[in-house]
Design a protein around this nucleic acid. Sequence first.
DNA 1: ATCCCGAGGG
DNA 2: CCCTCTGGAT
Length: 218
Amino acid sequence: MRRTERYRLFIDYFSEHQPVAETELTYENPYQLLVAVILSAQCTDKRVNLTTPALFDRFPTPYDLANSHFEELQPFLRSISYPNNKTRHLLGMAKMLTEEFGGEVPEDAALLQKLPGVGRKTANVIASVIYNQPKMAVDTHVFRVSKRLGLVDQKLKTPLEVEKQLMRHIPETYVAVAHHWLILHGRYTCLARRPKCEVCPLTHFCRYYEKHGAGGII
DNA sequence: ATCCCGAGGG
DNA sequence: CCCTCTGGAT
């Protein structure tokens, strides 16, 4: 099957069954989403959402965060992964945001990536969700699922390579929603360890299923 | 044991 | 390219 055909089947299915797909992180403004996405590295959204209410209550603006310090902030992040790194990231991010960007979250992905704790994936999420830019953030789910489905070469080794191939094939107007489709599919069906092929609606064009069959283990 | 909407540093 | 960070869920 040709690659363009896989994209058509993928988009057709989710357009029909999941026309609206958005992030599960809870946030009320760009600053809050930026913080939430930074915290979400190697951590479930559910756990981030348990952490952020107290955090946003104590630090409602980047200025509050910038005026804090490690010992005060770190306890808020104790129950998520990499609390020490993320404490440093948030403090550095807030400092740069307030000192260089007037407290506003920048729109440009290249500027976003200058912020401590913000890599390409996080920058693309912000640019896409907050500023409606056609950016594909490649996280662990997008990386795994797009390869399994055969949307990109299975041998690709970096998220950037996967991002480029996806962007080459997905129409701009579908990039944002397709990102969330890949996330949702990876989180609830195409699981990393034991994908639920028996209930997956995409097996008729999935390269992973074609190769491993039902119940195939990685 | 392996993974979770990664980033930074070597 | 690799490694480290590092809590919680399965």
